[in-house]
Design a binder for these strands. Sequence first.
DNA 1: AAGAGACCTGAATCAGGTCTCATGTTTCTC
DNA 2: GAGAAACATGAGACCTGATTCAGGTCTCTT
Lengths: 203, 203
Amino acid sequence: MTDIVTGAGGRALSRKGVETRRRLLEAAEQVFADLGYPDASIVKITEAAGVGQGTFYLYFASKQEIFAELVRDLNRRIRQTMKEASSRGTNRLESELLGFGAYFRFTEEHPGLYGIIRQAAFVSPEMFRFHYETMSRGYIEGLREAKARGETGDIDPEITAWALMAAGEMIGLRYILWGDGRMPERVVAEVARIVRGVLEAET
Amino acid sequence: MTDIVTGAGGRALSRKGVETRRRLLEAAEQVFADLGYPDASIVKITEAAGVGQGTFYLYFASKQEIFAELVRDLNRRIRQTMKEASSRGTNRLESELLGFGAYFRFTEEHPGLYGIIRQAAFVSPEMFRFHYETMSRGYIEGLREAKARGETGDIDPEITAWALMAAGEMIGLRYILWGDGRMPERVVAEVARIVRGVLEAET
DNA sequence: AAGAGACCTGAATCAGGTCTCATGTTTCTC
DNA sequence: GAGAAACATGAGACCTGATTCAGGTCTCTT
């Protein structure tokens, strides 16, 4: 099933329209990451995209809407990356660690995008929540299956998933964004210890 | 040493000035929590505080400044609450869990304030970082001492602290703010399991 | 090559915000 | 109780930025 890309008002777009929409989204990504939502403006986005101001409204109804679209897109990309990586693991711990690795690499490559998600908290609370709920869903599934296979202790998969997701995110923030942009080896090793502790500890 | 409260430009305030400044801060807390930073305005804050627009500038130089002040204040209150609670523990695990409990209670009582911190990410990156660094400092100290006393496994206190702090925050978000406003007992129990696993797992 | 529609434009409009300032009020001090 | 200092005010000057619109241009299709 091919996605039909639409502009504001749901009108279908031709090849050229799709391309312009993509340019606007990329420009928005840049501008929101650099300036933050409050200081980003439609003019700056259209300038960065190289189109006229009016063109913006052919594709998005408002600043809010393009922001939400951006978060959706970013969310899809992170999850895809993590899913691919963790599917290569042979047991839950390995999968979990591969997923973390992918997340850290994504953070290294897209420090700006990482920040965009954080802004969603107040720009678009629904998208903010959507992001974390979709992110946690993958974890929860994985943990449930692992538990059924006896690979973990008697854990609560849901709560555990939220805790692990948060830890990964914060450690990315602390050691990549507030560090030198690269995740140090020792941190990866300690994360492995922490994940193992969380998965194995009995009640 | 008594703090001398100052207004914009560092001028000292009389009793009445201190009171007005406090009213402005409380109003700002309300407005930022309800509307979010982008939609909050000086006018709305002064209205909520019951003072004239011009009065604002007698106390704060800008919207940014009052926001930063608010985060500082909030940060101080959370840490004080957690410190008090955890000091009643007889070992690290107990202290840790008491600290989490205090954090959850704070979140229950101040759902709006919790949100304000998240907004700081872009409004005032320095204050955002300040918040997490001061929050983690307490954890790190506690874990270092516990490790020296042999109460934990061979952990890296710093990385472990950031992971635990993040987990607590996210679980508050998920089960209090996105739940029914109260932390369920089963979640508290699972958090205890998770914290224990993190503190005890060996490399 | 002509008509239809999709696409594009940026000046103009409009809503709302920040911050200043001239003026008035209160409180303190002697 | 008079002068000084602090405090308070809100109209309005000045911005900034979102959004509209009337008038183009491009690109398919036949």
